[in-house]
Every structure is written in C-alpha cells, then in structure tokens.
C-alpha cells in the first residue's frame, strides 16, 4: 500500500511575523533585479545580460589565463598589461549596453501594465519604490563594473610571488577599485532609470538612454576639439564616470580636464537623474 496522503489545501489566515519596510523594499529590489537579468523569463531574455557579463570578465580572464598558462615561458606583468585604472575604459561599451538592457526593464513594465496602482496600495511609499528600483538597477551593474576588477585583483594576489605583500602594497587599489565600481554603476544606473521613468515603452527608454549618453559625448568631443575648449568634453557622459574613476589613480590624463571636474560632472548627472526619478514618482496618480 502506498504511503501517499491527500492534503486538503484550505485557506488559512496568515498569522506569522511580517517583515518591516526594509523587507518590502528588498523584496521589490530583488524581484526587479532578477527579472531585469532575465530570471523567470525565456532564455532569449537571459542571453544578452549573461553575454555582456561574460564579455566584461573576458579581459581579466584572458590576462590571468595567459599568465597561468605561460608564466614559465613569458614574464607577463598583469598590472602593466591590464591596469586597474584602465579596466572601466576597456569595457565601457559593455557597461553602457548592460545598463541600456537592464534599467528600462525595471521601470517601463510597471508603468505600461499599471502595476504602480498595486504597489502604492500597499505600505510601500513612493520613495521606497524609487529606492528599491535604484538598488535593483545598481546592484546588477556592479556585476560588470566591480566584480571583474575584483576578480583581476584576486588573480593578481594569487599569482603574486608574495600574496600577503601584494595585498599590503596594493590595499589602496582595492579601495579605488571598489569606489570606482560603485561610482560607475551609480552613474549608469541612475541615468538609465531616470530616462526609463519618462516613458512606459521599453524601446523609447533604451533609445533615449543611448541618445542621452552618446550624442552629448560626440557633440562635446567635436566642439572641444574644434574650439580648443577642453571643458566642453564634460558633455561626454559616456566617459565622465570612467575618467572620474581613472582620476583616482596616479598618472591620470583627463584630456585637459581635471579629475575633480570629471567627478563634479558625474555627480551632477547622478543628482539630476535622482531628482528626475523622485519627481516622476511623486507625480504619479494611482
């Protein structure tokens, strides 16, 4: 005789402990982040974010792999071959595309499908919604802005003749890498979310975001070169956070613009983006 039993699934009242506001915000952020990366969705949606993550790791994997395989034959100095300061610039286009793919997915469907009515009929406030979405936009971006460089650093520690000595001598680099990764993720994440908050259509959000980042860069670069006004390069939003990160390292070349100016430029874009986000969701009627 089988031990199988039939259970009567009845509606019972939930009597357990509910998590506080932080739990609700984290839940919103977690669900949103996973869905923007393609979780619980078809493989086609997963393909692009996963491919971009792999490409972001590729330089570190190649350099560390070459060193691991051929260290006996060739003396490869990975720090010179792939400096931490240059990593962001090398995968800048990947970061830009990753943000373009993931950030609209965080906001546009909620507006298009009018899910905001449901969110705001719960205990979730508008600021908490925005905070949750910023978290959901920035944390996945850290996978391409921070983790690859951390991975490179870890590889360098492993391959160093004296790993403990390497960590001791390059402790500041770890802080620079972390600060740089967070800055770049915040910049591209906030800008992407701000643009996405202006429309319910994903295609418009992606196009608007790429236009916002790329067109001023072309105009600023051309005018800066033509008019010999280096500060016009500050319109280069696609490179502003990258130069800000580079300015954290010694021997920074800001193409005639100081590291401080690039930093202020990046912060200004982030502040304006956040203001747009808050304004858009404060004005939402439910």
């Amino acid at each position: 005789m089988s031990d199988a039993r039939v259970h009567d699934v009845r509606f019972t009242r939930f009597e357990g402990e509910v998590e506080g506001e932080a739990g609700a915000v984290l839940s919103l952020a977690r669900w949103s982040a996973f869905r923007s990366m393609g979780a619980h969705r078809s493989w086609k949606v997963k393909l692009v974010p996963i491919a971009l993550i792999l490409i972001a790791f590729a330089p570190a994997i190649v350099v560390l792999g070459l060193r691991a395989l051929f260290s006996a034959q060739v003396d490869i100095n990975t720090e010179r071959a792939l400096p931490y300061s240059d990593y962001g610039g090398m995968i800048g286009i990947v970061i830009l595309l990753f943000a373009a793919v993931t950030t609209p997915e965080l906001l546009c469907p909620d507006r298009r499908d009018r899910v905001l009515t449901l969110y705001f009929s719960t205990a979730l406030t508008r600021s908490q919604y925005v905070f949750g979405k910023v978290l959901a936009g920035v944390v996945p971006l850290l996978v391409v802005t921070l983790l690859p460089v951390w991975f490179l650093y870890l590889g360098n520690v492993v391959f160093a003749v004296h790993p403990v000595g390497y960590v001791r001598n390059h402790g500041l680099d770890l802080a620079r890498i972390t600060a740089g990764g967070i800055t770049v993720a915040l910049f591209f994440g906030l800008a992407g979310l701000a643009i996405a908050s202006l429309t319910s259509r994903r295609a418009w959000a992606v196009g608007g975001y790429l236009a916002f980042i790329i067109i001023p860069t072309i105009i600023g670069g051309s005018l800066g070169e033509g008019l010999k006004q280096p500060h016009l390069r500050l319109l280069g939003f696609s490179v502003a956070p990258i130069h800000t990160v580079e300015s954290l390292y010694p021997n920074f070349d800001g193409q005639g613009v100081s590291g401080l100016a690039w930093g202020a430029d990046s912060v200004a874009v982030m502040v304006v983006s956040l203001a747009v986000l808050i304004w858009r969701y404060r004005a939402v009627e439910v």
Binding site: G16, V18, G20, A24, S27, L28, L118, Y119, A123
Partner: peptide, 13 residues
C-alpha cells in the same frame, strides 16, 4: 508571491 513579499511576508510564507 511577489506581492505577498512586498506586503512583508517572508519568502516561504
């Protein structure tokens, strides 16, 4: 499940 979590229920619940 998502709405339950947004309303504060732990994942399993």
């Amino acid at each position: 499940v998502h709405m339950a979590q947004v309303r504060g229920l732990p994942h399993r619940s």
